[in-house]
Amino acid sequence: MKDKLHELGARAREEMAEAGSPEELDEIRIRFLGKKGELTRILRGMGGLSAEERPRVGKMANEIRAAIEKELTAKSAILKKLIKEQMLHNEKIDVTLPGTVVWRGGRHPLNIVLEEIENIFLGLGYTIAEGPEIETDYYNFEALNLPKDHPARDMQDTFFISNEILLRTQTSPVQVRTMEKTAPKLPVKIIAPGKVYRRDDDATHSPMFNQVEGLAVDQRITFSDLKGTLAYFAREMFGKKTKTRFRPSYFPFTEPSAEVDVSCVICGGTGCRVCSHTGWLEILGAGMVHPRVLEVSGYNSEDVTGFAFGMGIERITMLKYGIDDMRLLFENDLRFLQQF
C-alpha cells in the first residue's frame, strides 16, 4: 500500500509537471484527489491494514495529498501567469497609430488673448464693464473732452448712423458710463473690453477691431501707479523680462498722456524687423483721467484722480502669435482657427 501511495505521488508530480493549462491541472486534481479519485481508491484498502499500520499509512496518505495540492497551487499560479503573459503579448497594439479623433473646436485667438488680459486685471481687483457698441456723440466724444469741431476728432475716422449716433471709435465711453453710475462712490476699477469701429481697412487696420479699456479712479491715484500697473501687466502678458517705456503723448481725455512701449517680444530689445529696429513696440495709450472727464462723470477732480489706458487686442494677439496680417483674424479660415 505504501508503495502504491509513493507511486501515485510520483505519477501525479510527473503529470503536473507536464500539464499545460489550468484545465489539465483541474483534471489531474480530480483524477488523483477527487472523491472517486485514485487516492480514495487506494485508501479504500485501508481496512486490510493492521491497527498499527493504519495511522502511519493514513498520515502518509495525508502528506502525499498535501504535497500534491501544494504542487497543484504552485503550478496553477505559474500557468496563470504564463497565460496572462501570453494574453498581454497577443493584445499588443501599435501605439504610434493616431489617437481616436475626439473632435473638438476652439476659441477665437482674439478671445483667448482677451481672456488672458482679463485674468491679469481680475487678479489686480478690476471688474469687467461693458457698454454699447453704437454710441451717442456725447459719450464717444464730448464727455471725453472732445467737443464738436475738435481737431483731435480727426485721429479717429468715424462711422455715423446719424449726426448724433455713431459706431463707437473706442471703448473709452464705458469710462464715463461707469463713473456716472458709480459716482460718488470710490474706488472705480474696471476694464472694458469690446468691439470698436473706424473707417480704415488694410493689412494693419480693420474697420472693426477690439480694445480693452482700463480705468482706476480713487483718491491718490497717481501717474506712478499707472506706470506700475502697466509694467505689471506687460510682464504678466509678455514675460517677466519685459520692459516698459512711457512716452509723452496726447489724448483729449487724459492728461498727462502717454504712449506705452514694451521691449520687443521678438528680439527682446536688440532690434529686429518687427520692432523696426527700435527694440520697442507700441502697445498702449494711457494717461491720467482729464479733470473735465472726471467732472462730467460726477467726481470732484480736485479730490479724486484716476488713470485710464486702452490697448488693441488685435495688436497684442498678432505679436503673441506672430500674425502679420490683421485681416486673417476676421477671415475665419478654419485652417487658421485650428491653430490656437
Binding site: 474706488p187 491718490r220 491715484i221 501707479d225 500697473t229 512711457f246
Partner: peptide, 8 residues
C-alpha cells in the same frame, strides 16, 4: 516717475 501700484 517711480513704479507703484494703487494703494487704495
Amino acid at each position: 516717475a517711480p513704479v507703484t501700484l494703487p494703494s487704495g
